[in-house]
Amino acid sequence: MTGPVLEVDAVRKSYGERLVLDDVSLRVDEGDVICLIGSSGSGKSTLLRCLNLLEPIDDGEIRFEGSEISDPRVDARAVRSRIGMVFQAYNLFPHLSVLDNCTLAPRKVHGLSRTAAEARARDLLGQFGLGDHVDQHPDRLSGGQQQRAALVRALCTEPRLLLLDEITAALDPELVGDVLDIVRSLAETGTTMVLATHEMSFARDVATQVCFLHEGRILEQGPPAEIFTDPREERTRAFLRRVLPPA
């Protein structure tokens, strides 16, 4: 095995006076599923956006596949073409059909032929239960379907790493399961993922590591069994008391 897929080292990020990430370090190995938990505003989303170079960092280092991507000389597009990202609000392109949403990057960024890109997209869309909606426009789909389409869009480029930013937060509870099942099956097939989530039971089942963020710091990190049953920090315990149903 080679080194870690992603290494985050002492990353710091602030918006003006407000410090949103403070000395955050994280290591993501091949096949890891890292769940970021914590209350809103704790920096989960910002961390994901920094990993994808959507936000510049103020200090620290991010290394992806062994080379530093926080260097100003790095071609951000080349990095992003290897990392997939799914957003809370789906962010599908409303003017393109589901299929075109999924083939845009493979064709324009990765240079795939239309036939190859479409074959791959159709295959994945079929797997994710969207076979009947391939030619529809995103607004015709339900939230759960849209988010699954967004997942397929991210997967179509065969990313080395998948970033999921609270992808079920905007969904009806009954639709959450569909989307999480897909993420679960991705995890089982060894997809490397970092995801911010509010779904604690999902994190407990699927994560290889759970990170609890509080006020921009990773306060506690460990395997889910440890974090959820015997957290070290009082703040983690307080957070879990609030979000977990009383046992």
Binding site: A10, L19, D59, G60, D71, P72
Partner: peptide, 22 residues
């Protein structure tokens, strides 16, 4: 917290680099 932060050597190097690129 923000007041006591001093940028790391790497960050300073990055800033110099950014300035050079600019």
């Amino acid at each position: 917290m923000a007041a006591t932060w001093t940028p790391s050597e790497r960050e300073l190097e990055r800033r110099r680099l950014r300035q050079r690129l600019r």
